[in-house]
């Protein structure tokens, strides 16, 4: 793959790779570093990239491996805890309410087991088919569906619990 092809095929993946890395690392700056590293890796092996069938799935797989490595090595790493503002009894208007709901879900998603978090991200944010998700994660297709279902149900239960206690 020469540089023109590389720019046309690999560069457009940056948003997807970034969002994926960010969902795993829970940190925007580290996510950018991670994607840069992936781009560099892809660039050095560009000669062999033409043989890759699904470049996006391939790059996503690399991103996941790198992120998991980083999480394993960085024991000092902490999820940034307080992005979520605690709901006050002020009469929030709808925009604020939406923002609060999003922040709360963000927190819930962070607390999901890694596999569930990965699967729900790839499905609902990146819109990938189950077989693509299976390829990236190395799971069986049926397992992808089950994991997806579990993640969705957990989010619903936790969210409803949160609303009831408000």
């Amino acid at each position: 793959m020469h540089s023109e092809e590389f720019k046309n095929n690999v560069l457009p993946l940056k948003g997807a790779l970034y969002r994926f890395a960010k969902s795993l690392l829970a940190n925007a700056q580290e996510a950018e570093d991670c994607v840069q590293e992936i781009f560099l890796k892809l660039w050095t092996k560009r000669a062999s990239l033409s043989a890759v069938v699904n470049l996006k799935a391939y790059a996503m797989q690399m991103t996941r491996n790198l992120c998991l490595d980083k999480l394993k090595n960085a024991k000092h790493h902490m999820l940034d805890v307080e992005q979520v503002t605690v709901a006050s009894d002020v009469n929030l208007h709808s925009q604020l309410e939406a923002r609060e709901a999003v922040a709360y879900l963000e927190d819930l998603v962070k607390k999901l087991p890694e596999l569930q978090r990965t699967v729900i991200h790839l499905r609902s944010v990146e819109g990938l088919e189950t077989n693509e998700i299976a390829e990236i994660t190395g799971m069986r297709i049926e397992h992808v569906r089950v994991t997806l279902s579990r993640a969705r149900i957990t989010l619903r239960q936790q969210y409803e619990k949160h609303r009831r206690h408000e």
Partner: peptide, 14 residues
Amino acid sequence: AQFTYFKTKREEEP
């Protein structure tokens, strides 16, 4: 709530 969350996530860019 879930789909509102997915929508904001889709809009994230480096």
